[in-house]
Amino acid sequence: MNQIADGFKGERAIVVPYSVRNFQSGNELTKNAFITHIGYYPNAKYHFRKRSKGALENILIYCETGKGFITLENEQFSLTKDQAFIIPAHKAHSYEAEISKPWSIYWLHFKGNSNSLHTAVSGKILNLNDSRSTDRLNLFEEIYQNLEMGFNPDNLEYSSICLQHFLASLKYTDQFLKIKTADTEVLDVIPLSIIYMKNNLTAKITLYDIAQHAGYSSSHFGSLFLEKTSFTPMDYYNQLKIQKSCSLLQFSTMKIKEIAYFLGYYDPFHFSKSFRMVMEISPREYRLRYKTTV
């Protein structure tokens, strides 16, 4: 049997760079609980991970469908549909999908200065088959999509707040079930322009192209974008390209030069230089370090 840590069809994953984690650990809104890794593995057949010394972060696994097993310090737990489990940091553990009915899981790694929200609900099966199970998954998607949109301070802070809300929904179940709210958020020009960037990561779009799509002049849009995100539009666009390249390095077999040309860089040297500026390591080092992250 070939046990694997990742590489599942349709999987999604984001690894937050160490430089960004330094910001998160010092920011007042994020330092108590923040994401370091997040993803989704559908129909994860032969999924297996073992850490004899534990992980540096707490790990939350939410089983959407199927079944799997978690062993925490020699005690085994069975995880099935609409159940979750938090593995505390630094605790020896392993987890694996059942062969006949492999799980589909949402997962994330998180850490922070405060353990008060998750200590009481860690190390045990959490049954989440209630009237707001969909809302929890929506919270997960909000975290993922905000981080996918880039690592600017607003996205990081909002993601941490959503994480704390998610953890609170596990600890304070009665309170969470009392209130049912509907999301009616209207997208404004900045999120819409970021979506346009994400849809054109393999193209060579310019500031003029993005501004035209948003309906502004280049100068006005550039100033507005910088005010809202703390990044220039092209710096943000490059950051999204680097984020996409991280996914390709971790989950594809594309060569580094193929990734460079696929994402519209002039040559592999230009790509490697841009990658190192954001991630603080080379693409090759990133692939070696994170090829089996989860």
Rank of each mutant, 00 (worst) to 15 (best):
G39F: 06
K257A: 11
S218W: 01
M149G: 05
T65L: 07
G123D: 10
A84M: 07
D135T: 10
Y265I: 03
I205M: 06
F110Q: 10
D188F: 05
Q164H: 02
I194L: 01
E280M: 07
N58H: 13
I195C: 07
W103D: 00
Y46I: 00
L137T: 12
Q239A: 10
Y196A: 04
K53D: 10
H37I: 14
L170W: 14
V16M: 08
L170G: 01
I242D: 00
N27D: 15
N115G: 00
E73L: 14
E227P: 08
S116K: 13
D235H: 03
R276A: 00
F110Y: 14
P283L: 04
I256N: 11
V20Q: 04
A5G: 12
I59R: 05
I105C: 12
K50S: 05
Q145W: 05
D209W: 08
L201H: 05
I205H: 08
K9H: 11
S193A: 07
L201Q: 07
G39N: 04
V189Q: 11
T80D: 15
F225N: 12
L137W: 08
M1G: 15
L147W: 05
F110K: 13
N74F: 03
I125A: 03
S230I: 01
V121D: 04
K50F: 02
Y144R: 13
N152Y: 12
S52E: 09
S230Y: 03
N27A: 14
F176C: 09
N27G: 11
V294Q: 13
Y172L: 10
E28S: 14
D209P: 05
T36W: 03
Q83K: 04
Y62N: 08
S217Y: 02
R284T: 12
I210W: 09
L192H: 01
G264Q: 05
W103T: 01
I105N: 13
F225K: 12
A260L: 09
L126F: 08
T71G: 02
Y62Q: 02
E64I: 11
S159Y: 07
Y290F: 15
T71H: 07
T181F: 01
K291P: 00
F269D: 12
Y41G: 06
Y208D: 11
K81P: 01
N27C: 15
T293D: 08
K53R: 12
K257W: 07
S217K: 07
Y236C: 03
G66K: 08
F110E: 13
L177N: 12
Y208I: 14
L177A: 04
S114M: 08
P17G: 01
S122R: 09
K9S: 08
Y62A: 05
S272C: 14
F140A: 06
S247W: 15
N127E: 15
G123M: 14
M254P: 01
P268H: 10
I161Q: 03
Y158P: 00
S78V: 15
K273H: 04
G264V: 14
K50T: 02
K255R: 14
K31E: 10
L288S: 11
I242K: 02
